[in-house]
Write a protein that binds this DNA or RNA. Structure first.
Lengths: 202, 202, 202, 202
DNA sequence: TATGAATGAGAATTCATTCAT
DNA sequence: TATGAATGAATTCTCATTCAT
């Protein structure tokens, strides 16, 4: 039992360190981008040796993937929650926007897609594609529902709606507005919602 | 006169080859991203030797810049035309959307910005920053005008409008919808316009 | 204390390896010249991988500089010692010759100066220029002193003397005579001294 | 006959152009050194196309060799003249010094030897070695003669004398003193002679 | 013959990954 | 297990040489 407890402790420490590495990597990656972030830099920022990174992650791409994957699942999860949300289709989408708006890393990944291409190759790519298509299906589903309920304009193809909806999460727009202190996060969300649902016309 | 014609011919050929290289590079870059595109690969795709690339462009960064710069100027130019367009603010923006919607490379560059950081360093960066800030100013100007004319919602900060407006040109959305043959280009534009100005609500 | 000892050991090993690389590089450089010596070749001769060179030296030019700099400082140091040497001006110069005659690399560098131009650019060049001008000044000083003491011929410009004096250290002459086993090092020095101070006439 | 005359004219023009190229190359090489002088640069300086260089010389090394070879032969020739010169051994050497002192390119080549190594490889190297050994033999011969005539110090090995004698022609010393306007060419020669034959002692 | 565009081998440098301690 | 030195494949860029016009 003593041994087991120790292992558990060790295991916990391992997990913690892994989370710490991922958090560090996220910060560096978002600041510098995938290619300008070296393993050396991640290690240095995490205060560990480069070799240690490889004890936790098989490769740079695996590390980045380990960073991306849970964000995608989390987003997918929110989509599922939104679908199950008790309210109108609009309220579902609003719920989704409110919950995910500051999850900039998700959109960061989407935008960096070409740069990170190698991360999404092979087996990993297949997984990601599945999650992404589930996300988009979920969003499409909510929009379809809204159309059926006659609250969304059925003249616009649902897929286009879904794609432009995803676009709302663009971290560039968010950071330009919020991080530069021009509007508060809450206001930003309010305006985005307004623009998406009613457009900019008076 | 004969000589002159020859020179002109040579020069023309040179320009054509240069355009061909740029076109090739654009295709490869958009598919693979800046860092995953090697000069070797561009050369191979263009069917020329690596050294030849360097006869036309001093460095990889210069090549990419040669690709980016005219697209940015062209976009800026369209913004100027839009400002001068005879019509309402909305009509101006519609004109802009119609003219630039398929210029995917512009947005590709915006998204790849961190990856391409070296391209926009030094003198080149200064130029680009000027053009970009002129573009955004122009777009802001048109939106302000629309607010003054009471056709746009003055409750939303103009900068946010401008940023979300720019986002419309995201190549991912465009290619997902148009390139995958789901809607025609014209329809795509029509729907985008509708969504931007009136939102998705019925 | 154990830890400290380890660190010291590591550091010492590092220094040793660095010295070994420099020694290897010196041999290759003197045989092949700056441009015909590739980093690959230095690495191969040192029995290490190319990348390892870059762990010790930021660039080829830094490596070569690391080779040149101490030799120059050592030469300058000997000049200072010579100036302070207790004896006549001639004895000072003799001291200098005896101490530095086999330091072939110094003259090698002087001869290879145009080839190595890039090594002596910028900050590095400034340092080197200072050392070189201190060396030549020192030698001029000793010669002036000899003239004042009426033991050197004041009809000959001191600068010319100094330049021809430096020329004595030409590695080609040294290796032709000593390395080919024609005369011993001591004899070589004796003859050089005789020729420099008394000429070849009987 | 008309045809022949034309050919001769052409041939003469060819020779002239070849000489012009060589002259141009010499200037550029002496200023920049072997490796920092590109074929492009030689062509540009000569006002012809790069391809044309290759109509005259099979390769860069051949071009440089064509530059070096006649200088060596000319030097050898002067050595022969010196040997046949009507006068004492000293007068023979003085004749040699006076005639060749400004032929800096010869010494430039000697100094640049490692840099130009490839020029003196293979068949070309063999030729050069022959000429060089003839030169050194001739100089040794004159010194031996001087020793036999008891005007040179027979305590010093003749080979060393010969090597140090060659060293007199070092272009660096020459240019430092003459080109910088510190002493006239004639004075420079006078001082060199004095130092070589009588040393610097009073 | 003269041209200069095209070629591609070769060199410096970087950095993800491995491995001895 | 943790370290960080060592590795070498991959990449950018240069320049002597070739070749189509």
């Amino acid at each position: 039992m003593e041994k087991r407890a120790k292992l558990t402790l060790k295991e916990r420490q391992r997990q913690e360190r892994e989370q710490f590495i991922l958090q560090t990597a996220e910060n560096v990656l978002m600041k510098k981008g995938y290619h300008h972030t070296s393993m050396d830099e991640i290690a240095a920022n995490a205060g560990i040796a480069k070799g240690t990174l490889y004890l936790h992650f098989k490769s740079k791409d695996e590390l980045v993937f380990a960073l991306v994957e849970p964000k995608l699942y989390s987003f997918l999860n929110t989509v599922e929650e939104a679908k199950a949300y008790h309210g109108s289709s609009k309220e579902k989408l609003v719920f989704l926007i409110k919950k995910e708006m500051s999850g900039a890393f998700f959109q960061f990944v989407m935008k960096s897609y070409p740069d990170m291409a190698s991360v999404f190759q092979g087996e990993r790519g297949v997984q990601i594609q599945k999650v992404l298509s589930n996300i988009i299906s979920g969003i499409i589903e909510i929009h379809e529902e809204g159309k059926a309920a006659k609250i969304f304009d059925s003249a616009i193809p649902t897929e286009m709606m879904a794609n432009l909806f995803m676009n709302i999460f663009d971290p560039h727009v968010y950071s330009e507005s919020v991080k530069n202190g021009k509007v508060s996060k809450d206001d930003f969300i309010r305006y985005v919602i307004k623009m998406y649902f009613q457009g900019i016309e008076k």
